[in-house]
Design a protein around this nucleic acid. Structure first.
Lengths: 210, 210
DNA sequence: GTCTATATACGGATAGAC
DNA sequence: GTCTATCCGTATATAGAC
């Protein structure tokens, strides 16, 4: 009987092994602090193979960055542009999907935000997120809500900052928060699951606050 | 007439010039991505002087890190341990002081959180924030509020995450948020000043939400 | 495709003149 | 105290054997 293929219990190609290792190390340490030797070791391969497959540290990094950005924005984009869901449902889905993603890949936000800061235009320029956001189904609903008086008249970017902050910040601040609260990683994760229900509730009350 | 001494229009000692430059560069790029040559250039001095005054990149970094941590926690600590202010007033002061600090030193949070992740125990271990937080005037008031039913029964760390997330996240996500919202730095800062009034209002409604 | 050995570049640090 | 020149370790990348 053939080996079960559930998750990358690595019987992967060398190329894949290197990329997966690179993702882990780059996410943890960022570009500058990462040594190609660390990636090779993590992948269980020889250092020379890294250059054989990916030419250079920069090129390998570019691939990881591009995929990480995609994972990050895909979640937002698909939820925010669904014409069939209510604004409140969008909040629920956004928070829930995001927390699920971050429970598996907790290092993505700090990684992206750190690297983007060094290079905002180059990394975000071509994605033109601005258009994507301004013309989203979400924005139409938000503006309609403000006009009809159901939503307090606050700039939509405040709202964006709020939902993102409530959802993403705990993962960015994880080490410090665990220290402050005297929590284990286990307890932290339980708390994040609780937040999937709490944040939408809070955000709804905020939307109406005057 | 002597030169006005408003702000470090640098007629500072060489030692000070180096430290200020180091703060700027380390905050922007983190330890690994910073080259001592960058610091020397920023300070307008010779590279050799950096080692003359501070012995090594590591030692210089340790000084900057220690001062940054102090600035970061001092704000929290002084507000949260004031026995004379109400819980609601504490929120107002915390948010207001923090946003004022971050408008001047916007790179502190991402810097601290990135570096702390690499080295949580060494950097936070001796500060024992846990005790400080658990026995704070704030915590007593929070627990009292929950017992009397004025505050919804949610774990205080959720509350901590909320206030920090709402306040700090916009600064961490600044480049991405400006891009998404099509905002200038000027507009961003105006928005942060608005949040000094908005966040306390929002947080109060959240505290009661069930 | 994968390894060992090595070339090359870069960055932190110091020696020594002034 | 401050500079120029240089040393030396470390990290990326490649050459060449297998």
């Amino acid at each position: 009987m053939r080996q079960n293929k559930r998750l990358p219990v690595p019987d992967l190609s060398t190329e894949e092994k290197i990329k997966n290792a690179a993702r882990i190390i780059f996410h943890q340490k960022g570009f500058a602090a990462t040594r190609t030797r660390d990636i090779a070791e993590e992948a269980g391969i020889n250092l020379a193979l890294l250059n054989y497959y990916y030419r250079s540290k920069e090129k390998l990094f570019a691939i990881i960055m591009q995929e990480s950005l995609a994972a990050f924005f895909q979640t937002v984009s698909s939820v925010m542009n669904d014409e069939t869901t209510s604004l409140e449902k969008k909040i629920e889905l956004f928070v829930s999907n995001y927390i699920d993603l971050l429970l598996v890949e907790p290092d993505i936000p700090l990684f992206l935000l750190s690297e983007v800061r060094s290079n905002p235009d180059e990394l975000l320029g071509k994605l033109n997120i601005r258009e994507l956001f301004q013309h989203s189904a979400f924005m139409k609903q938000y503006r309609a809500g403000v006009e009809s008086g159901k939503i307090a008249p606050v700039h939509p970017m405040h709202f964006m900052m709020n939902v993102m902050g409530l959802t993403v910040f705990p993962f960015i601040g994880n080490p410090m928060l665990k220290m402050v609260g005297g929590m284990s990683q286990q307890q932290f994760e339980t708390m994040m699951k609780e937040r999937k229900a709490l944040i939408p509730k809070w955000v709804k009350t905020m939307l109406k606050a005057r």
